[in-house]
Simulated assay, not measured.
Amino acid sequence: MIRAVRRVALSGIALVVLITLIGLPVYVFPVVADSPRPVDVIMVLGGRQDGREDYAISLAEKGLAPVVLVSDPYDQTDPYMQAICDRPHAVKVLCFDPDPRTTRGEARFLRDQAAQNHWNSAMVITFTPHLARADYIVSRCFTGDLVMAEYRSHLDVPYWAYMYAYQTAGFVRAVAQSGC
């Protein structure tokens, strides 16, 4: 009986280690991460409100893009987003409510704005564990030159574990959906 419990426990530990190792290049050290470079537009994906909005605006203000699209997918009025969206900036900042309020809705908004404004290149900024999935989804909608830039924020171990599960489920859902 003890041997069986030990085998199950070791198998469980081995599975966790395997999943962790497989996820490292996808969620922790995403191979799709690019260095920021000049583009027609920078888009910030909604999420943790961790500073990525100000990071994107600072990149634009350094001359990497004349326009920043900031996703505001929150249901209620949010003081953090109001401070970003209502504050004057040295570049054009356009806050938008994606439809649907997902990465797919954000990608569709970028596609539509790119067509209207004749943008051929875009930088998309999101936090590290979301980068690979965001690249997969946005690439299905935006066919121009796409730069995927990560915003590194501090994440504790339980949140990393949650992100592994959440992003994996999101990948499964994205693969099951067709088109943009």
Score class of each variant (00 low, 15 high):
86 D>S: 15
101 R>L: 04
71 S>R: 06
94 L>R: 14
94 L>K: 11
137 I>M: 02
80 Y>E: 06
147 V>P: 00
74 Y>H: 11
138 V>D: 07
165 A>S: 09
134 A>W: 04
65 A>N: 01
166 Y>T: 02
54 D>T: 11
98 P>T: 12
104 R>N: 01
145 D>W: 00
64 L>D: 11
103 T>I: 12
108 R>S: 03
166 Y>F: 14
100 P>C: 10
156 D>L: 13
135 D>T: 13
79 P>Q: 10
69 L>G: 02
125 I>P: 03
102 T>D: 10
47 G>N: 09
130 H>V: 01
80 Y>D: 05
83 A>E: 13
86 D>N: 14
114 A>H: 07
74 Y>Q: 08
142 F>Q: 05
154 H>F: 15
158 P>V: 09
101 R>C: 02
80 Y>C: 04
76 Q>E: 14
86 D>P: 00
143 T>R: 13
41 V>F: 10
67 V>R: 10
78 D>E: 13
134 A>K: 04
162 Y>Q: 09
141 C>V: 13
49 Q>I: 08
82 Q>L: 14
60 A>E: 04
65 A>F: 02
122 A>R: 04
98 P>D: 08
48 R>I: 00
53 E>M: 06
96 F>Y: 15
52 R>T: 03
156 D>H: 14
149 A>I: 01
156 D>R: 14
103 T>M: 03
112 D>P: 02
70 V>G: 00
161 A>G: 11
83 A>Y: 00
132 A>W: 04
158 P>Q: 10
142 F>R: 03
43 M>N: 01
86 D>E: 15
88 P>A: 10
158 P>E: 08
88 P>C: 05
45 L>Q: 05
118 H>M: 05
132 A>V: 02
47 G>V: 09
52 R>W: 01
132 A>E: 06
53 E>I: 04
162 Y>L: 05
126 T>Y: 06
51 G>Q: 10
112 D>H: 07
136 Y>M: 12
89 H>W: 15
109 F>V: 10
90 A>C: 00
151 Y>E: 05
112 D>Q: 12
62 K>D: 14
98 P>Y: 07
90 A>H: 12
81 M>C: 06
150 E>C: 00
105 G>D: 04
156 D>K: 13
150 E>F: 00
50 D>E: 14
67 V>G: 06
83 A>H: 07
94 L>E: 15
55 Y>G: 02
115 A>Y: 01
41 V>S: 08
80 Y>Q: 06
134 A>S: 15
58 S>W: 00
95 C>K: 06
58 S>G: 01
76 Q>I: 02
91 V>Y: 05
122 A>V: 07
